Simulated assay, not measured.
Amino acid sequence: MKQLEVQIMQQSYLLGCPEGREARLLDAVERVDTAMTRIRDAGKVRARERIAVLAALNLAFELADREAAELAAAAHVPPLSAAAPMGTTGTDAAMLPQSTERLQALVQRIDDVLGSDGHLL
C-alpha cells in the first residue's frame, strides 16, 4: 500500500492508498477539500469538525441522488420533471418537504451533539 500526503483546508494528512488508485484518491481529496472550503468560505461555520460533517452530508446526498438517477435509468423510468428539484420525480416531489424536514432535523441533531466543541479536527 502506498502512502500519499495530501492537503485538505491547508492541513496535511498522510493517507494509505492501494497501488494504482492514486488518481482516484486525489480526486476524492479534491472533492472533499472543495466541499469543505466552500462551506468555510460561506462564513457561517468555523469549526473544522462541523465543516467536515456538513461536507460529508452534502457529498453523501449528491451520491444518493446519482445512485437514484442511475437506478431510475436502469429501470427505464421517464426522465426527471423539470419542475421537480434535481433527483426527484413527480412522486418523489410530494415527499420532498418530509425529506427536507428530516435532513434539517439530522443537521440539528449533529449540531446539538457537536455543541461548541470545535477542536476535534
Score class of each variant (00 low, 15 high):
47 A>Q: 13
73 A>I: 06
37 T>E: 15
79 P>K: 09
41 D>S: 09
47 A>P: 05
35 A>G: 03
35 A>T: 04
38 R>W: 01
63 L>N: 10
46 R>W: 00
91 T>S: 08
71 L>Y: 05
70 E>C: 06
42 A>P: 05
67 E>M: 06
76 H>Y: 08
41 D>M: 07
37 T>R: 13
58 N>A: 07
35 A>M: 01
43 G>A: 03
67 E>H: 12
74 A>E: 15
37 T>Y: 11
56 A>V: 03
59 L>H: 00
81 S>A: 10
79 P>A: 08
87 G>E: 03
73 A>H: 04
63 L>Y: 10
70 E>I: 08
74 A>M: 05
28 A>P: 02
79 P>W: 11
90 G>N: 11
82 A>M: 10
36 M>E: 02
71 L>Q: 13
65 D>E: 13
76 H>E: 09
86 M>R: 15
77 V>C: 11
89 T>F: 01
68 A>R: 08
88 T>I: 01
66 R>L: 06
76 H>G: 02
48 R>K: 11
45 V>N: 01
93 A>I: 00
42 A>K: 14
79 P>Q: 12
58 N>R: 07
73 A>W: 04
63 L>E: 15
70 E>T: 13
93 A>M: 01
31 R>C: 00
89 T>M: 02
34 T>W: 13
34 T>D: 13
46 R>I: 09
77 V>E: 14
54 L>H: 06
61 F>L: 09
34 T>K: 15
28 A>F: 03
89 T>K: 01
46 R>Q: 10
29 V>E: 05
35 A>R: 06
60 A>F: 07
85 P>M: 00
59 L>N: 00
28 A>M: 12
61 F>N: 13
38 R>F: 08
89 T>H: 08
68 A>T: 08
49 E>I: 04
70 E>K: 13
85 P>S: 08
91 T>A: 10
76 H>T: 02
49 E>F: 05
88 T>P: 08
44 K>F: 02
64 A>F: 03
63 L>G: 01
37 T>M: 09
